[in-house]
Simulated scan of single mutants.
Amino acid sequence: MLVCSCNFITDKDIEDTIVSLLDEDCWQLIVPAKVYHAMEKRGRCCGCFPNVVDIIIRTTEAYHAQRDSTEAEVFDFMTRLKEFHEENRRADVERRRKAHRAA
């Protein structure tokens, strides 16, 4: 399935890249920018990033399930990922500015 139409990247390309990153360090935090950098691509419109995050989560969970990781390790990783996601969401909200009009 085509995930990024700007760069013509399929879900298989993304999954393969994630697995190669996890083979290097299975507990690293993987974000869309890291995946695109590993593929030597860049996000253009970045509309695909939410789908890439879903693929990262799904692929990482499957990777650790196949490797017999302990539940505590997987739970810790997912907790860190959710905290990272929430911190970035808060930062985005804080950066938004309301339109100011001069009276």
Rank of each mutant, 00 (worst) to 15 (best):
M1P: 10
M1Y: 13
L2K: 13
L2S: 09
V3T: 08
S5Y: 09
C6L: 01
C6M: 08
N7H: 04
N7V: 05
F8R: 14
I9T: 15
I9C: 10
D11M: 06
D11F: 05
D13W: 00
D13M: 09
D13P: 05
E15D: 07
D16L: 03
T17Q: 04
T17G: 06
I18F: 07
I18W: 00
V19R: 15
S20M: 13
S20E: 13
L22P: 06
L22A: 04
D23F: 15
E24I: 13
D25P: 05
D25W: 00
C26I: 05
C26V: 06
W27V: 15
W27Q: 14
L29V: 00
V31R: 07
V31E: 10
P32N: 10
P32S: 03
K34A: 08
V35L: 02
Y36L: 05
H37D: 15
H37A: 15
H37W: 08
M39F: 01
K41E: 11
R42H: 14
R42K: 14
G43W: 03
G43I: 03
G43P: 07
R44Y: 15
C45M: 00
C46T: 15
G47W: 03
G47N: 09
C48L: 01
C48I: 02
C48S: 03
F49Y: 15
N51C: 05
N51V: 06
V53I: 12
V53T: 15
I55Y: 07
I55N: 02
I56H: 06
I56K: 01
I56L: 00
I56Q: 01
I57H: 14
T60I: 02
T60V: 04
H64C: 03
H64F: 07
A65I: 09
A65G: 02
Q66L: 10
Q66M: 12
Q66C: 09
Q66G: 11
Q66Y: 08
R67Q: 07
R67L: 01
R67I: 08
R67D: 01
R67V: 09
S69C: 09
S69L: 10
T70V: 10
T70S: 12
E71F: 06
E71K: 14
A72K: 13
A72D: 13
E73C: 00
E73Y: 00
V74S: 07
V74D: 01
V74C: 04
F75N: 14
D76H: 09
D76R: 11
F77M: 08
F77V: 03
F77N: 04
M78W: 06
M78Q: 12
M78R: 13
T79G: 02
R80C: 11
L81Q: 09
K82S: 13
K82R: 10
E83I: 11
F84R: 12
H85A: 06
E86W: 03
E86R: 07
E87D: 14
R89T: 05
R89H: 04
R90F: 00
R90H: 04
A91M: 00
A91L: 02
D92G: 11
D92P: 05
D92R: 12
V93N: 10
E94P: 00
E94Q: 12
R95L: 09
R97P: 03
K98W: 08
K98E: 13
A99N: 06
A99T: 12
R101D: 12
A102R: 15
A102E: 13
A102F: 14
A102P: 10
